[in-house]
Amino acid sequence: MSLRSFLLSSPLFFGVFLFQEAFVTQLRLPFGGFNLLLIVALIWAALSTPEIGALTGFGAGIGMDLSQTSPVPIGHWTLVMIIACYAVAFFSYGDDNVRGNPINIIFLTTAGVLLSQVAYLLIGIMLGQEIGSIQHILFILAGTTFWSAIISPLCLKVISYLHANVFGTRNLL
């Protein structure tokens, strides 16, 4: 059941991946912009069980690794996303105070974006990636956190709706 639901969600993530690559990367937004696939995957994970969260992270991570603008080896984002999505799902699963409140989900997603980028940096350092100055890193982290806090509420409703349909929990909405 879970695997079937996960497979059903793959067209959504493929669509988001295409949208990210074709449109979002064209927008020269101030403060560095955002990664829609990362945000959608974290919201999806926040609404799912930890296992589905980890699988979602795996799928989204592969997509982010295949992105043309990804300079890192394939598997880097995958590893980060598995951990991030599992963690987000773990914190929200079974706690209606978290899952029932959109603000908590937005907070979890935004914190997830920030922490996943920090994890990405740490793994990047271990793999010998150049990361630039501290000032630049802080600027990018602040910028993506800012954009995630703006974008998450905008797409939360749509993702919740799709998630409920895929997992057959629409009656709980």
């Binding site: 930890p50 296992e51 980890a54 598997g75 880097h76 995958t78 590893l79 598995i82």
Partner: peptide, 23 residues
């Protein structure tokens, strides 16, 4: 809170190992 089960843990381990294999 979610405690997890063996199947879930195995899945996480498999996914993490796969990503490390990709890297």
């Amino acid at each position: 809170r979610y405690g997890g089960d063996n199947r879930g843990r195995l899945l996480i381990i498999v996914l993490v190992v796969t990503s490390l294999l990709f890297i």
